[in-house]
């Protein structure tokens, strides 16, 4: 890190003024891809959100902020927005809390470590839809493995729990599954951070008689700051955008009781055929993601200067 940030200005100074034009053949294809795949759809999205759109999908001219007005007049939006915040915060914080000790564990040398690391990647490598469907089967009311086991243990006195349909439980189940699929990535980011900690600092502390807890609190944890920041921000984006878990397990129901802003946008467009406000919500969601990305850029820049 240090060497790169020191070198950048030097290289820049040596470059001729038309360096960007010279670089175009190399970065051109990538730029074109970004424009086609990211910029153009974003512009289209904003344009359509300002257009009147019928449920048949025909566009009927400029509509000003009409779609946004309809969206913000929706009586259910507030509860869904609050739930989205709870969803993101609880999934991200639980994920980090569980991943910290896990990363510590798989950083140790023990027989079978390779297997444990491999097994930890599986939920990450598997398609989220597949994972969700397997959980759906496990949590089924009458034939799910979960309820059957609880029953055999005598813990359910004849009243199986309807994990996914009972609004008292379903949101927590969704949070847990989202945590479950976020842990591998987070753990490996933290593991990478742990492995980049110079060995001599740790050894020096140990020679000075620091306990392992003191080493962790005083040296390892502060040096994990960068990895934790990156893990947190990437998880924020992932969890906010998370669609398949909720859709595969509850479809955001009953009513909108387990919807987030993402599933709500989809539900409005493709279940309720309410295209206008859905495009407006698409823009709101996009703006939210952009905000997190900006914070991310700010934070990574800040840490780079500091280190």
């Amino acid at each position: 890190m240090t060497s790169i940030s020191l070198d950048v200005p030097k290289i820049k100074n040596r470059r001729p003024a038309n360096s960007i034009i010279n670089a175009l053949p190399w970065i051109g294809p990538a730029l074109l891809l970004i424009v086609l795949v990211v910029v153009w759809p974003a512009i289209e999205l904003i344009r359509i959100s300002l257009t009147k759109i019928t449920s048949a999908g025909t566009l009927e001219g400029f509509n000003g902020l009409g779609n946004y007005r309809l969206l913000f007049e929706n009586p259910d939006l507030k509860a869904i927005a609050i739930r989205t915040v709870i969803w993101v915060l609880s999934v991200v914080s639980l994920t980090i809390l569980i991943s910290l000790p896990l990363a510590q564990l798989i950083n140790q040398n023990f027989p079978g470590r390779k297997f444990v690391r491999w097994a930890m990647i599986v939920p990450w490598a598997a398609s989220v839809v597949m994972t969700s469907i397997i959980w759906k089967w496990m949590l089924d009311l009458t034939s799910g493995e979960f309820n059957l086991t609880l029953q055999q243990l005598g813990l359910q006195n004849g009243q199986p729990v309807d994990w996914l349909r009972d609004p008292r439980y379903s949101f927590f189940v969704l949070v847990w599954i989202a945590v479950f699929v976020s842990i591998p990535f987070t753990t490996f980011v933290i593991l990478a951070g742990l492995q980049s900690i110079p060995h001599d600092i740790v050894e020096a502390a140990q020679v000075d008689g620091a306990s392992s807890w003191q080493v962790y609190r005083g040296i390892k944890f502060p040096l994990l700051r960068n990895s934790l920041l990156i893990a947190t921000i990437i998880n924020l984006i992932n969890v906010f955008n998370s669609f398949p878990i909720i859709w595969a397990l509850t479809r955001g129901g009953p009513g909108y009781d387990t919807d987030t802003m993402i599933t709500f946008a989809y539900k409005m467009a493709f279940v309720e055929y309410n295209m206008g406000p859905s495009t407006a919500l698409g823009v709101v969601n996009f703006a939210f993601i952009m905000l997190i990305v900006l914070i991310y850029l700010r934070v990574t820049k800040a840490t780079r200067v500091q280190v």
Binding site: V37, P41, A42, E44, N241, Y266, S278, T279, G282, N285
Partner: peptide, 11 residues
């Protein structure tokens, strides 16, 4: 989601 949707649409 919307973003992905549009990407897919353009494809």
């Amino acid at each position: 989601m919307k973003k992905i949707g549009l990407r897919r649409l353009s494809a």
